[in-house]
Design a protein around this nucleic acid. Sequence first.
RNA 1: GGACAGCUGGCCGAGUGGUCGAAGGCGCACGCCUGGAACGCGUGUAUAGGGCAACCUAUCUAGGGUUCGAAUCCCUAGCUGUCCGCCA
Length: 414
Amino acid sequence: MIDLKLLQKDFDATSTSLKRKKVDSELIDSLKNANETLKNAKLIYENAQAAQNERSKLFGQYKKEGKNTDELKIEVDAAKVQLIELLETQRIAEEALETIAMRVPNFPDANVPDGEDENDNIEIKKVLTPPTFSFTPKEHWELAEQNGWIDFERGVKLAKSRFSVVSGMGARLERALINFMLDFNREQGFMEVSVPMLVNRRALEGTGQLPKFEDDLFKVDGEELFLIPTAEVPLTNLYQDEIINGAELPIKMTGYTSCFRKEAGSGGRDVRGMIRQHQFHKVELVSIARADQSDAVFDEMVTCASNLLTALGLPHRLVTLCTGDLGFGAAKTVDLEVWLPGQNTYREISSVSNTRDFQARRAKIRYKEEGKNLLAHTLNGSSLAVGRTMVAIMENFQQEDGSIILPTVLQKYL
RNA sequence: GGACAGCUGGCCGAGUGGUCGAAGGCGCACGCCUGGAACGCGUGUAUAGGGCAACCUAUCUAGGGUUCGAAUCCCUAGCUGUCCGCCA
């Protein structure tokens, strides 16, 4: 959630910033109005309540002194009727504000480039040179089937489309990658954490998936539980409602989970292969940091993910997302895109975001510094999407006969 | 899944209808004492919102109810514990 005080204090600057993220001005106006309406309602109610508290104290005093309370009772009863109305007015104002505020995205950082969509993202740098082939490189689904690694049909049989089965060397590679990534991240100072893959509504509101994106989530029937779309949700919410000692920050975590996404609205994109599945594996990085640390931690996370790709020998590039491509909660995002020879293009394999205090305000993640409680900064990044890493390995290291040479760093995990 | 018990500040714990945001202790901070420390003594020590401030409002797991007034009484939910059932 954005800082509503900021909106109140400097409306022009905040609304300009939100407009960069394609928020329409009507929504911003209604947010401001809802906030003011609530403030007024509160003020009126609190004054009335103070008067009522005063009368109630008098009541106790009269009783003690043996005075007659009949007249006071009439007064107090009348005031109570009014109080109930005022409270109801306040409650409605609260709900109205909440409904709007929870659907307003985060401010982009000032230095994030303006833009409409992914075409306006800005490349930071390329790492490693894409390989050249003496033959026409195949796409991963062809290689996967030829090697017996992935069975797309049987996945559909068991669940539905966009599910697959990985077996044999494919399954071992998947497991090796997960272990390799976790070890790699641990060596970079990220503590391994194993978390629930089902979470409640509160957690998803904390990180910003709810209330706006419920259609993207799988929900457990008859329970207020959802399958996580990313480990970012449980990892970040570990510190929900907590006040952390400032000296303990930054907290840097890594965790492996399956992720589940409905991919509603993705239309017919990437229907073939394992680029876009309803269930996929991912190793995630999440950090909780002090405000003054978050930029440095962000860079560490980007470097960590990039070094992982480099260690695997995978050519990739780093891209700064423009305002139009930025996610709901992100103030700033760097995507890592891996080279896919079969598709002859770079495709997203990791996304590292700094949400500043946006998630912390929703999830009430705070830290104590010099006696004051301050909102923490939360950051998340994939490191990496396992399925897409397998795709990249297949396509980059394929031989003319369709066999695949696996990265040497994975040897000890296979 | 069933039965019972509990949930109070950073922690422990008192409090069964009125001046209780909450005794006492521990912890922590500062001061005195000391060559320095321990001990001892003193003072302070929740959060959020509003206001320049005095101060006001809210919060004793959450939501609802009774009452002029609720930490305290009633209902519901969540969580924790114990026993039973089931189970990797």
